[in-house]
Simulated assay, not measured.
Amino acid sequence: MATLTHASTDHSSEASWLTAYTNFIAKAEFTRFGWAVSALAIQGCVLSPALLLSMFYFGGGDWQFLVSMLCFLLVLVPVLSAMPVKYIFPAFATSLVLHLFMIAIDLL
């Protein structure tokens, strides 16, 4: 008679992207000030001026300026309210995607 064995379901070695992101956020909390300053610097010194220049040269709408300012506030509010990094990263990622999308709209 054959012995019945159960397959091992140990998935601890396989980290999903969500687990990796959660671990990264936990480690990044120690340097929250650096991440916050970097997000604001990239937002205010790279993304917003690039969008404004593309709007000026290629003709953008007023709605793009409004969305740009709201995206800047989307990043600024979690930073100034001293929220954890888990709120700063998604806000910055959303702002980055929207800015790049609007720049692509202007260029095309």
Results as ranks from 00 to 15, higher is better:
residue 3 T to A: 12
residue 4 L to Q: 14
residue 4 L to S: 15
residue 5 T to F: 11
residue 6 H to L: 12
residue 7 A to I: 07
residue 7 A to D: 12
residue 9 T to G: 02
residue 11 H to F: 15
residue 11 H to Y: 15
residue 12 S to C: 03
residue 12 S to F: 09
residue 12 S to R: 10
residue 16 S to V: 13
residue 19 T to P: 06
residue 19 T to A: 15
residue 23 N to H: 10
residue 23 N to C: 04
residue 27 K to I: 05
residue 28 A to R: 02
residue 29 E to P: 01
residue 29 E to D: 08
residue 29 E to Y: 02
residue 29 E to N: 01
residue 30 F to V: 05
residue 32 R to Q: 05
residue 33 F to K: 07
residue 33 F to A: 13
residue 34 G to C: 06
residue 36 A to R: 02
residue 37 V to P: 04
residue 38 S to W: 02
residue 39 A to E: 00
residue 39 A to H: 03
residue 42 I to R: 04
residue 43 Q to A: 05
residue 46 V to Q: 06
residue 47 L to Q: 02
residue 47 L to D: 01
residue 48 S to K: 09
residue 48 S to I: 12
residue 50 A to T: 10
residue 53 L to S: 09
residue 53 L to F: 07
residue 55 M to N: 14
residue 56 F to V: 09
residue 57 Y to E: 13
residue 57 Y to I: 15
residue 59 G to C: 05
residue 59 G to F: 02
residue 60 G to S: 04
residue 60 G to R: 03
residue 62 D to F: 15
residue 64 Q to Y: 09
residue 65 F to T: 10
residue 65 F to K: 07
residue 68 S to G: 06
residue 70 L to N: 12
residue 71 C to D: 04
residue 74 L to W: 00
residue 75 V to K: 04
residue 75 V to Y: 01
residue 76 L to Y: 02
residue 77 V to N: 05
residue 80 L to Y: 13
residue 81 S to P: 02
residue 83 M to T: 13
residue 84 P to R: 08
residue 84 P to I: 00
residue 85 V to A: 03
residue 86 K to E: 14
residue 86 K to T: 07
residue 87 Y to W: 14
residue 88 I to M: 04
residue 91 A to K: 00
residue 92 F to V: 04
residue 94 T to D: 15
residue 97 V to T: 05
residue 97 V to E: 00
residue 99 H to W: 05
residue 99 H to V: 09
residue 100 L to K: 01
residue 100 L to G: 03
residue 104 A to V: 14
residue 106 D to I: 04
residue 106 D to E: 06
residue 108 L to K: 08
